[in-house]
Design a protein around this nucleic acid. Sequence first.
DNA 1: AATTTTCATTTGTCAGACAATTAATCGTCT
DNA 2: AGACGATTAATTGTCTGACAAATGAAAATT
Lengths: 246, 246
Amino acid sequence: MKIDPNSPADLSAQIAKAIRDAIMSGDLLVDERLPSEAELSEQFDVSRPTVREALKRLGAQSLIRTQRGATGGAFVNRLRFEDAYGQQITTSTLLLSMNDVSFGTACEARYALERSCATLASERRTADHLATMRAETHRQSQPGLTDEAFCASDVAFHRALVDAAGNPVISYQLAGAVEAMQPLMNMITFSARSRETIVGLHSQIADALEQRDGAAVDMHLSALADYTNTLAQSIIDARQAAKANN
Amino acid sequence: MKIDPNSPADLSAQIAKAIRDAIMSGDLLVDERLPSEAELSEQFDVSRPTVREALKRLGAQSLIRTQRGATGGAFVNRLRFEDAYGQQITTSTLLLSMNDVSFGTACEARYALERSCATLASERRTADHLATMRAETHRQSQPGLTDEAFCASDVAFHRALVDAAGNPVISYQLAGAVEAMQPLMNMITFSARSRETIVGLHSQIADALEQRDGAAVDMHLSALADYTNTLAQSIIDARQAAKANN
DNA sequence: AATTTTCATTTGTCAGACAATTAATCGTCT
DNA sequence: AGACGATTAATTGTCTGACAAATGAAAATT
């Protein structure tokens, strides 16, 4: 392992890249121990703090884990789906909030991707998935619920739907699309009427899933997408009108 | 900003979390400057190297950027879609390679998600998208192409298809699913015959897109999914048979 | 043989220093 | 007065050396 000394500086970034490449190319295997920080600083001919900064970078991406003590050190981490979920959600949420993505665009993405689970979910859904969806639907119909709790339950419902497709890769990819919508949804005030409509559609989706009717799931999801979008649009319009009046 | 001194250690992780939370909650706005490393080390009552490790963690997630010099410092970074692509691809690739996800599962996820673009792409595709897809299809039909180059072109084709949906959120989410497949695809040896079939399906997809026929796009994508899976399965079977013979 | 103690290794943290970079400030000259 | 160059201050990047804390292994003791 060597690094380019006349590169645009930032040694720790270069070292992180070198190690990351070694992991991605398979030179470093899962659970393999990296050289100690002292050895790495010799190999790369930099100081230990610089090596440490590089290792922290990799740690932030869950590529390595560290352990103190005699047999400790930095180890190549087996990246688990659960670890990746969190990062995916963080990144997706920030992407939406920092790039003024419109509600419509985010909503379109979420439902378009989610609809791709309809067939698989109707084939593979278990009683567990269905029970979760029923429970969340029921919670959503309770009167005293805050808008935040309603949205959180909405996310839980849709995650169950996605998980019902029984494909961890899909679940991972959609975690971001589904969860990142919550901050946007939280900005909407749901009337009793609109909640009722959404709960109704959720029930229909659950029913269709129970009967393993993929086409119906898809149809109701599509209806839900349309309704959510219309609802958001009317709220945005109302706010703009109120703004114009002031 | 304060941190818990009797937490399970790793000060730099705690500090990183504190700053990350401040960014995600909106306490720190895009392009806002963080206090200097010296100030942060005072505020958190830790040493500068510890603060630096925390900042490197955040930098690895593209949450901040740093600049040297008099007016330099660490700034909250506007997370761009392009930056997020890279992380998404890295994470997805490692997820697949480290969790022995089967080719079938990954393939299913990729095509299920990609099919959700069919309708949108057929409505919004521009001449540019079409031209890219035609160009890649043409490249794929050239005889001397290595398997790696063939797969790379395949990825480029499908990215153009995804981008044609004209929704940056979808493009971002699917970047991982599409690109992370390449290492798996690279392990397949494509016969002249199978290449021909794939190129044929690609052409049909492009044709359908040209005519803005979403249903046809979806159908051909589905056919491509089936064919890819069958192809991979036959290769896996052949390898196992060869293995049994030895 | 089991238990305790010691020890070596390794990461986590700290203090202080210097180099490199960069923009603002200050002088100087025209 | 204005343009241009030198100085300066602030800030990140890097290094050195040190000590603390954790932890497993080896040695000593019972």
